[in-house]
């Protein structure tokens, strides 16, 4: 008798759980990924923010004292601005930020100039050809990023393919320095991020109604005028999305300046990494990260808005 009672209550419990699930499945679907992201994506930024306003003195050695910062955040407020002030006063950091932004911007522009006609040409290609070309664009994207950068090391090295070729043609009589220069970083970033520019542009140009081009021509617009008054404004969202998709990660790029630029190219991703790994100055590294995030927050919000609007369609 007690045994059956137990099973009925057990059954009742299982039933209740099921009932709860039936009623709350929607909440669960939202809650699980939401909680994951809150904990592993958003919370870490607050830790970074907190450490960036701490002092290096307490932070060395950093492992043991982390918890103390957690408890004693108020006392460290007075010292908080120090790390940021240090970044601001040291011309090296300011120059590095500006240099990163400049390299990212130039690379974005070059990517756009190469990608736009390519994306346009793929859209205008006949059926099966279009599919093959798209796969060819995505193929490098699926293969290792690191190895593609490495491939350029072989091309740009002093005894690399490009120098060999130039020597053989007779354009130069001794190898020119290509690897470990800013030029190499430009090439590497453009090469790596080109597919990220082509794909959103393709998606946008694909949606273009080409009878609008006919209409413009019919109304007296020459090809150039048609491009600037009709095609360009209508593919603007794709251009902006592609540019942001290149510009934002390129600004914080670490591997490309490290492998292709050597020590000669200042980019903020490298500085952050060396501040953290080599100098063990965690507060400054955190401050560098926070400032980088602040610099990029506007373009990131812009990207989010485009993404949200595209999703709403």
């Amino acid at each position: 008798m007690p045994e059956t009672q137990l099973t009925t209550t057990q059954a009742g419990f299982v039933e209740k759980v099921f009932e709860w699930l039936q009623r709350n499945w929607a909440k669960l679907i939202i809650a699980i990924p939401f909680a994951w992201l809150l904990f592993f994506f958003l919370a870490p930024f607050f830790i970074v923010l907190k450490i960036s306003v701490a002092e290096l003195l307490i932070a060395s050695p950093p492992f043991t004292n982390l918890l103390e910062w957690g408890d004693g955040i108020l006392p460290s407020v007075s010292a908080s601005i120090d790390n940021y002030a240090y970044l601001w006063q040291d011309p090296l950091y300011v120059r590095t930020y500006l240099n990163s932004l400049q390299i990212a911007a130039v690379c974005t522009a070059i990517c756009l100039l190469i990608a736009y006609p390519m994306a346009y040409a793929i859209v205008r290609a006949p059926g099966n050809m279009k599919l093959i070309l798209l796969l060819l664009i995505m193929l490098p994207f699926w293969s290792s990023f690191l190895l593609r950068v490495y491939a350029w090391m072989g091309l740009l090295a002093d005894q690399g393919t490009i120098n060999d070729l130039l020597l053989w043609i007779g354009l130069i009589d001794k190898p020119i320095r290509l690897l470990y220069t800013e030029f190499a970083v430009y090439v590497g970033i453009v090469y790596t991020y080109l597919p990220f520019m082509i794909l959103p542009l393709y998606a946008n140009i694909e949606k273009l109604d080409f009878s609008l081009n006919d209409a413009a021509a019919d109304l007296g617009a020459r090809p150039a005028a048609t491009f600037f008054t009709v095609t360009l404004p209508l593919t603007w969202p794709g251009i902006v999305a592609g540019c942001l998709l290149v510009f934002i990660p390129a600004t914080g790029e670490f591997v490309i300046p490290d492998l292709l630029g050597g020590g000669n190219v200042l980019m903020i991703g490298r500085v952050l990494s060396s501040e953290f790994n080599a100098n063990h100055d965690w507060p400054v590294a955190s401050a560098v990260a926070v400032v980088l995030l602040l610099v990029l927050v506007i373009p990131m919000m812009l990207y989010h808005r485009i993404q949200a609007r595209e999703g709403a369609y």
């Binding site: 830790i47 950093p62 918890l67 991703g269 980088l292 990029l296 990207y303 993404q307």
Partner: peptide, 27 residues
């Protein structure tokens, strides 16, 4: 907030994500 946290990692510089997660694990 949710959609923001979804679209941010697509463009977030990896050094920032890496650093922040490491500090989270240490904490």
């Amino acid at each position: 907030l949710f959609t923001g946290m979804i679209s941010a990692p697509l463009v977030m510089p990896e050094v920032i994500t890496g650093l922040s997660l490491l500090l989270l694990f240490i904490t």
